[in-house]
Each structure stands twice: as C-alpha cells, then as structure tokens.
C-alpha cells in the first residue's frame, strides 16, 4: 500500500474509570477512505477527537507524517492545520458570513492574503454549489448547506487528512444526500478521509476499508463488500442486523 499518513498506535482513552478506547491501532494510508462504524458509545467520535487532540489520550501515540500529536505539545496548532475536521453540528461561526467563516483561518493562521484566500474559497463554494451564499450568515442556511460550508472551511486549510464526525446525524433526511455527495466527490479526488457515520449504504459506497468498533476496540475490519455481506464476527453480524427489517407484507395473497 502507499505511504502511511496517520499512525494510531495502541491508544488508550478513559474518562475517569470509564475506558473509552482500549489500545486500538489504525494505519491510514494516503488517499485512503476509512469508515468507522459501531454502536453508540463505542468510542467512534472520541477516536476522531483524540486524533485532533481535542481530547488528551492516556496511553499509546498518534503520529501524523511521523510527527507526534499531543494535546500538550507546543506546535499543536501547526499539526491541527493538517487535519480538517467536520463536526456533527456544523459549528460555523455565527457572527461571520459564509465567506468570512472560510477565509478566517487561512488568513489568521496561515497568513495568506485576503485576495488569494477569497479566490480559493469562491472556487470551493462553487464546487459545492453554494457560491451564491457567500455573503449569507449561517443562520440563513439550511442544515445541509451549513454542513457543506463547514466542509469547505476545513478544506480551505489544505489538510492532509479529513475527519468527519457523524456529519449527517443532525440533518433532515432530504439534506443528507447533498452532504454525502460532497464527500463522495472528495473521495473521488483522492482525499484521505476518516469517516464516522451511521449511513450504512453510504459507508459501503465510499469506504476503501471499514472498521467496526465496539467497546473501544476494533472488532472487525476489512473490505466493505466483505464486511457488509459476510461479517465474520458475531458482534458485527448483530450490529448490521439492527439495520435490516423483515417484510411483514403478504404479497398477492389477498
């Protein structure tokens, strides 16, 4: 496989006595799309938050391009620029317009010129079909639009890897599609992505590799086709079964 971008090595994370992540390891390769699934409370979101050092870890290590990610490290802000993160509740800045939301960090953090940052922001907005919203405020957008802006905002920092934390969980069903399409587009262009989601069909379509997490451990991982059609472990089988419904209709009998 191609070169490794992100190495997660035996990390442990706990809140008090609650063990959330129990020594799990993942290697993420350049251009790879990994989807992490699992029941609520299995540690999926915590894992993403640890990668971005929004949560400190109590054991193991996380390295991006060989560089240690540590919540106490001095150059944390620098490493975080290489990691784009999109949250479940968008977290746009409500006092700034769409354009200002996008160009803020490129200008403040990367010291890029306003013209250059604006030009790139407009190109990205055009790609997600929101160029006409550049001067709107977040409160004037729908959930799906906000989430696409949040994705553009993360992309504008030119991250090496993108983390998506249940980005469609707060959306109305009819808005899920537009966000997932945007993500599919990114995957097609070779983005390295780590996605936490409950959308199983989407996971199957976008993933290069599926990781099934339960109880803070990797229970099963592999090719999405194999995983979704023939899950090897019992826990994965039970989990996937919760997404299936048996038909109760009686066809043609009445």
């Amino acid at each position: 496989m191609a070169d490794t971008v992100l190495t997660i090595n035996k990390i442990k994370k706990s809140y008090g006595v609650n063990l959330i992540l129990n020594g799990l390891s993942i290697d993420v390769h350049k251009g790879e799309v990994i989807v992490i699934i699992g029941p609520s409370g299995c540690g999926k979101s915590t894992l993403l938050r640890c990668i971005n050092a929004l949560e400190p870890i109590q054991g193991g290590e996380i390295r991006l391009d060989g560089e240690l990610i540590d919540s106490k490290s001095r150059n944390l802000a620098q490493i975080r620029q290489k990691i784009g993160m999109v949250f479940q509740n968008y977290e746009l800045f409500p006092h700034k317009t769409v354009l200002q939301n996008i160009i803020l960090a490129p200008m403040k953090v990367q010291k890029r010129s306003k013209e250059e940052a604006t030009k790139e922001a407009e190109q990205l907005l055009e790609r997600v079909g929101l160029l006409d919203k550049r001067d709107s405020y977040p409160r004037q957008l729908s959930g799906g639009q906000k989430q696409r802006v949040a994705i553009v905002r993360a992309l504008s920092m030119h991250p090496e890897i993108m983390l998506f934390d249940e980005v469609t969980a707060a959306l109305d069903p009819e808005m899920v599609r537009e966000v997932l399409d945007t993500m599919l587009e990114l995957a097609k262009n070779g983005r390295t992505m780590l996605i936490v989601t409950h959308e199983m069909n989407f996971a199957r379509a976008i993933a290069d590799r599926v990781i099934f997490l339960d109880g803070g451990e990797i229970v099963e991982e592999g090719d999405p086709e194999d995983f979704f059609t023939h899950p090897k472990t019992e826990r994965a089988q039970i989990f996937l079964h919760t997404f299936e419904y048996e038909s109760v209709k009686h066809h043609g009998n009445e």
Partner: peptide, 21 residues
Amino acid sequence: IHQYESAYALGMNRSQTYFSI
C-alpha cells in the same frame, strides 16, 4: 465549547480563538 473546538480544529491558537471567535 464547540465554538472553541472548531476554531482549534482549524489550527487557531488560544488568543486567535479569543479575539476572532
């Protein structure tokens, strides 16, 4: 707290987060 977090996630440091967000 998510407002702080999304600023940090964009690579902003503490004072940038305070003054801009």
